[in-house]
């Protein structure tokens, strides 16, 4: 590149020439992009000044975001692993010492941990399953309704936007004996939040209510990818509404469904706010996040708390791994070129 173009490239982000051999109607067109990427890869040694400055600019633009993300997550994760290998109770700071895997042994042999783990898994599986069904219904309604589309979409966004703690309080009061309309309606004379089974059901209800719209929005994005012509072709081929849904829409939407499931499963696994407000983890309704928080902040036992943190992190990584490897979930944005 000539000297003048170089200085332009540095002056503003807008100028790198779109170096495709044959710029088509859109500069982001698949073939042009691909050719260009190939060029960048194989031409590592023969970078022009322009490309070098494009890289410099890109790294400069990405650096702040990358630094913040790494500083706030990368180092603490390592630190957390280190803490998990210590006996470290803030009430007895003098007793801090390296204990190897003793904390892990203690946590993994504790019935509290396994109860919480079971509760978390149960809530995760049940709520995500319900959300998938409800979310799909909601997505279809939002996508296909012939009247009041704006109204439906706006109201569906309310649960998404509302503060979880606020929603949790609404559910808590609704199920509080005497105060709540739901308690009086469905369980007069009892206290549903003080019994494990009904408390878990209410926690799941609160979780489902809050996150179904998000699921629905992700699924709606998938629905938009199903071409109308495909559905028309299917009905010409003799498929009824249900068959069209199962045999045409679901397979086409599969990538979107898997992404939605992955997001929601990982999100549900870290459930905290709802349980904290609804039961505070009483009657064996703690999730792993609640349990870790109790050990950390209330008991001030950093060693045990960190051990739980690490275990939760590993569980989440395992879930993500299973989704990506077993179901072939395409992580959104993981590949900017030649996706699908």
């Amino acid at each position: 590149m000539s000297g003048e173009r170089l200085s332009e490239d540095q002056a503003a982000p807008g100028s790198p020439a779109d170096g495709t051999a044959e710029p088509g109607p859109s500069p982001a067109g698949g073939s042009g992009r691909g050719g260009r990427t190939g060029g960048t890869r194989s031409g590592r040694r023969t970078l022009t000044e322009g490309q070098r400055s494009e890289r410099r600019l890109a790294l400069l633009l990405c650096a702040p975001a990358a630094l913040v993300m790494i500083a706030v997550t990368g180092w603490p994760i390592i630190y957390s692993v280190w803490l998990s290998l210590q006996r470290y109770d803030l009430r007895f700071p003098a007793d801090q010492e390296f204990v190897g895997l003793a904390n892990y042994v203690e946590v993994l042999t504790s019935s509290y941990w396994w109860t919480s783990f079971g509760v978390t898994l149960l809530i995760t599986v049940v709520s995500v399953a319900i959300e998938l069904v409800l979310g799909m219904a909601l997505a279809l309604i939002m996508h296909r309704t012939i009247v009041g589309r704006g109204l439906v979409r706006t109201s569906a966004l309310v649960p998404y936007g509302i503060v979880t703690v606020v929603a949790a309080f609404s559910w808590r009061y609704a199920w509080t004996p005497d105060t709540g309309y739901l308690a009086n309606l469905f369980a007069p004379g009892s206290a549903p939040l003080t019994d494990q089974a009904s408390a878990l059901a209410i926690i799941t209800l609160a979780e489902v209510w809050k996150t179904t719209p998000f699921m629905a929005l992700l699924l709606m994005a998938g629905l938009a990818l199903v071409p109308d012509d495909l559905l028309k072709a299917a009905s010409m081929d003799g498929a009824g509404p249900w068959q069209r849904f199962i045999k045409v829409m679901v397979p086409v939407m599969k990538p979107a469904i898997l992404v939605a499931l992955l997001f929601r499963t990982l999100d549900a696994f870290r459930i905290f706010d709802n349980i904290y407000v609804l039961t505070s983890g009483a009657q064996d309704t703690s999730s792993v996040s609640i349990l870790a928080n109790t050990n950390l902040i209330q008991a001030l036992n950093l060693g045990i708390g960190s051990t739980m943190s690490v275990l939760i992190f590993l569980s989440v990584a395992l879930i993500a791994f299973v989704f990506v490897k077993l179901f072939g979930t395409a992580a959104p944005g993981s590949d900017t070129e030649g996706r699908r």
């Binding site: 494009e54 603490p76 870290r270 950093l302 708390g305 943190s309 959104p332 900017t336």
Partner: peptide, 28 residues
């Protein structure tokens, strides 16, 4: 908009953080 090495890494890292259990960061 730009071509640069490490793009996929950056996207991957931010995806990881999006899925990260926040409780795991609380203690450190």
């Amino acid at each position: 908009r730009l071509q640069f090495p490490g793009k996929r890494l950056l996207v991957g890292v931010s995806l990881l953080i999006a899925m990260f259990p926040q409780i795991s960061l609380v203690s450190p």
